[in-house]
């Protein structure tokens, strides 16, 4: 099990924070382009899922899998979008993403008067706390499973 990377978007589509662990493939495009593409994909999937659903949705889109990775998605009512890519053996990451929101983002960004909201996060404290939290997760293991 391993965690590849993490994206945090605000409701306007700005990438507030990006971090990666054990990522093997780097895209040829710039990070900025990649964030836009990722946000566009998430946005389209949300609209796609809500139209296709035969019954009314509560939380909507949660995750998708390909042959190599699993993308987990969590959105707050305020429009913050948490996206995390892991390998296929990882189960639901909803609680983890919610935890990142409630005990890291709210604690170290919202409660920090020096952090401008709606702008990319530069806080070293948040960065370190997030890294520490992710590395301590049972789903995180840097050992590559053959």
């Amino acid at each position: 099990m391993t965690i590849f990377n993490f994206y945090l978007f605000d409701r306007h589509g700005t990438c507030l924070y990006y971090s990666e662990w054990n990522r093997k493939k780097q895209l040829t495009m710039s990070k900025d382009e990649e964030f836009k593409l990722m946000y566009g994909m998430i946005f389209s999937i949300k609209s796609f899922a809500s139209r296709l659903s035969p019954i009314d949705m509560k939380e909507g889109f949660q995750n998708f899998t390909t042959s190599k990775y699993k993308l987990h998605f969590f959105e707050t009512p305020s429009g913050l979008k948490f996206v995390m890519n892991t390998d296929l053996s990882v189960g639901s990451m909803k609680d983890v993403l919610h935890q990142i929101f409630s005990s890291l983002y709210v604690e170290y960004i919202i409660k920090n008067p020096l952090c401008e909201l709606d702008e990319p996060i530069t806080s070293e404290l948040f960065k370190n706390k997030l890294d520490e939290y992710i590395r301590a997760l049972p789903q995180f293991s840097s050992k590559v499973v053959a």
């Binding site: 659903s53 019954i55 909507g60």
Partner: peptide, 16 residues
Amino acid sequence: SPEPQSSGIHALETDT
């Protein structure tokens, strides 16, 4: 994909 040689979406899950 963060991993090389990934296929497209196999399964997409929502609450409904």
